[in-house]
Protein backbone atom coordinates (compact mmCIF):
# COMPACT_ATOMS: atom_id res chain seq x y z
CA UNK A 1 0.00 0.00 0.00
CA UNK A 2 1.41 3.42 -0.98
CA UNK A 3 1.68 6.43 1.37
CA UNK A 4 -1.14 8.07 -0.54
CA UNK A 5 -3.45 5.06 -0.13
CA UNK A 6 -2.64 4.79 3.60
CA UNK A 7 -3.38 8.47 4.12
CA UNK A 8 -6.55 8.26 2.04
CA UNK A 9 -7.80 5.41 4.25
CA UNK A 10 -6.95 7.37 7.36
CA UNK A 11 -8.64 10.51 6.02
CA UNK A 12 -11.78 8.54 5.18
CA UNK A 13 -11.92 7.29 8.77
CA UNK A 14 -12.08 10.91 10.00
CA UNK A 15 -14.03 12.38 7.09
CA UNK A 16 -16.27 9.64 5.65
CA UNK A 17 -17.23 10.16 1.98
CA UNK A 18 -20.52 12.02 1.63
CA UNK A 19 -23.62 10.09 0.69
CA UNK A 20 -26.03 11.31 -1.99
CA UNK A 21 -28.04 14.18 -0.58
CA UNK A 22 -30.28 17.02 -1.65
CA UNK A 23 -30.92 20.46 -0.14
CA UNK A 24 -33.33 20.43 2.79
CA UNK A 25 -35.49 23.25 1.36
CA UNK A 26 -36.35 25.00 -1.87
CA UNK A 27 -33.43 27.39 -2.45
CA UNK A 28 -34.88 29.15 -5.48
CA UNK A 29 -36.50 31.97 -3.40
CA UNK A 30 -33.08 32.70 -1.83
CA UNK A 31 -31.43 32.81 -5.26
CA UNK A 32 -34.20 34.93 -6.71
CA UNK A 33 -33.92 37.50 -3.91
CA UNK A 34 -30.12 37.41 -4.04
CA UNK A 35 -29.89 37.83 -7.82
CA UNK A 36 -32.15 40.74 -8.36
CA UNK A 37 -31.66 42.82 -5.25
CA UNK A 38 -27.88 42.96 -5.73
CA UNK A 39 -28.34 44.65 -9.12
CA UNK A 40 -29.83 47.72 -7.47
CA UNK A 41 -27.64 50.71 -6.55
CA UNK A 42 -27.41 51.48 -2.86
CA UNK A 43 -27.31 55.05 -1.46
CA UNK A 44 -23.58 54.57 -0.87
CA UNK A 45 -23.01 53.63 -4.54
CA UNK A 46 -24.99 56.67 -5.65
CA UNK A 47 -23.11 58.91 -3.19
CA UNK A 48 -19.70 57.71 -4.39
CA UNK A 49 -20.72 58.13 -8.05
CA UNK A 50 -22.05 61.64 -7.37
CA UNK A 51 -18.90 62.63 -5.46
CA UNK A 52 -16.69 61.31 -8.29
CA UNK A 53 -18.72 63.21 -10.90
CA UNK A 54 -18.54 66.42 -8.85
CA UNK A 55 -14.80 66.04 -8.31
CA UNK A 56 -14.25 65.54 -12.05
CA UNK A 57 -16.42 68.59 -12.83
CA UNK A 58 -14.36 70.71 -10.40
CA UNK A 59 -10.98 69.27 -11.39
CA UNK A 60 -11.21 68.10 -15.03
CA UNK A 61 -7.46 67.48 -15.19
CA UNK A 62 -7.95 64.68 -12.64
CA UNK A 63 -9.58 62.69 -15.46
CA UNK A 64 -6.13 61.92 -16.88
CA UNK A 65 -4.94 60.71 -13.49
CA UNK A 66 -8.06 58.53 -13.19
CA UNK A 67 -7.62 57.20 -16.74
CA UNK A 68 -3.98 56.36 -15.95
CA UNK A 69 -5.02 54.29 -12.90
CA UNK A 70 -7.77 52.48 -14.82
Amino acid sequence: MTDEERLARLLRSAFPPTTASVPTRDLWPAIEGHSWTRDEWSWIDLGVAAAAALALAMFPSALWLLAYHL
Binding site: P23, L27, A30, I31, H34, S35
Partner: peptide, 10 residues
Protein backbone atom coordinates in the same frame (compact mmCIF):
# COMPACT_ATOMS: atom_id res chain seq x y z
CA UNK B 1 -23.44 23.70 1.15
CA UNK B 2 -26.86 25.33 0.73
CA UNK B 3 -25.36 28.81 1.24
CA UNK B 4 -22.58 28.06 -1.25
CA UNK B 5 -25.14 26.72 -3.74
CA UNK B 6 -27.11 29.98 -3.59
CA UNK B 7 -23.90 31.98 -3.97
CA UNK B 8 -22.82 29.81 -6.94
CA UNK B 9 -26.04 30.25 -8.89
CA UNK B 10 -26.02 33.95 -8.11
Amino acid sequence: AEDVLVESFW
